[in-house]
């Protein structure tokens, strides 16, 4: 129970001058969720806007059941697992490459911001990076289709255009958060480490990096979120596989159940990936009580 609930009078409501106990939390949550499905069902049933063209929650569940058993989707021959695997791999690969480049770059820019830090990398690098940052990753889609081919790798076709767009989506959040993480460190921690005899390398290893880690992981978490946004956009436009691709394919073929299933699966995978990052973050930083 939160303190907020312990404050007098908050966790009660009054009805006709009498106190009425509230239903327990689980019931309130259930009401909310059930309410959502009822609204969805009613919108389809009574054809609110053009909802009549869409599927209701029950049909969606039935469809999910079918595809979970491996039915091929959207006129192709692949099961939904293949498409989900493609999207997941693209997000993981794109975000990983972004992290591998953005974290060192961010540490370099962040540490060189301080006075007397040697070469002022931040002045050489920041303007170039900052001038590219405002372009939304999705706006890179046409350019990257133009520039990045589909490469066959051991029997799989790797769509490097989609990978590049995901990479761009994840790169900037990770970079910005890494820089912030380094800059926010109180100078006295550095001084303390130096006074205890740490060399520059050791200061970096034992003070700067760990203190920036929460912020870096926040960046990775944001990066994965944007990775899912961009992968769907890129697959709709440029893909031949993936959840974005089948969702849009389903629209063309008017298989509305797959549109709904695709949305559910994309949401579930996005949710699962942020939960995993949260887990890893808690593992990596037992000393921190900061949520990423």
């Amino acid at each position: 129970m939160s303190t907020r609930e312990r404050v007098l009078g908050i966790d009660r409501r009054q009805l006709l001058g009498r106190e009425v106990p509230l239903p327990p939390r689980a019931l309130r949550w259930a009401t909310s969720v059930v309410g959502f499905f009822v609204l969805w069902w009613a919108a389809v049933e009574y054809s609110f806007l053009n909802f009549g063209l869409f599927v209701g929650p029950v049909e969606t569940l039935v469809a999910i059941y079918g595809y979970v058993l491996g039915d091929p989707v959207a006129g192709g021959s692949q099961s939904i697992y293949i498409h989900a695997a493609y999207s997941t791999y693209r997000v993981v690969a794109g975000v990983s490459i972004a992290a591998l480049l953005a974290i060192p770059l961010g540490l370099l820019i962040g540490t060189s911001t301080r006075a007397g830090a040697g070469i002022e990398w931040n002045n050489y690098l920041s303007p170039a990076v900052e001038s590219l940052r405002p372009i939304p990753p999705v706006a890179w889609v046409p350019a990257s289709i133009l520039l990045f081919p589909v490469v066959p790798v051991v029997g799989f076709s790797v769509n490097t255009a989609v990978l590049f767009v995901v990479f761009i989506g994840a790169f900037f959040p990770i970079l910005v958060n890494t820089i912030e993480g380094v800059r926010n460190l109180d100078d006295e921690f550095r001084r303390a480490a130096q006074s205890l005899g740490a060399s520059d390398r050791q200061v970096f290893r034992h003070v700067i990096f760990p203190s920036a880690l929460p912020s870096i992981l926040t960046g990775v978490s944001l990066g994965i979120g944007l990775g899912w946004i961009t992968v769907v956009a890129a697959e709709i436009v440029a893909g031949n596989y993936g959840l974005g691709y089948i969702t849009f394919q389903a629209y063309r073929l008017l298989q509305t159940d797959i549109i709904a299933v695709g949305m559910v699966v994309i949401g579930a995978l996005g949710y699962a990936s942020s939960a995993i990052v949260q887990r890893i973050a808690n593992r990596a930083m037992p000393w921190s009580d900061i949520d990423t």
Partner: peptide, 24 residues
């Protein structure tokens, strides 16, 4: 009463709604 329903919708990237919105 409200947040769990929103939390159901939130993880779906807005772009994944595009086919749905064109239709509906």
């Amino acid at each position: 009463f409200t947040y769990p329903a929103l939390e159901l919708v939130r993880p779906i990237p807005p772009i994944a709604w595009i086919p749905f919105t064109i239709l509906v």
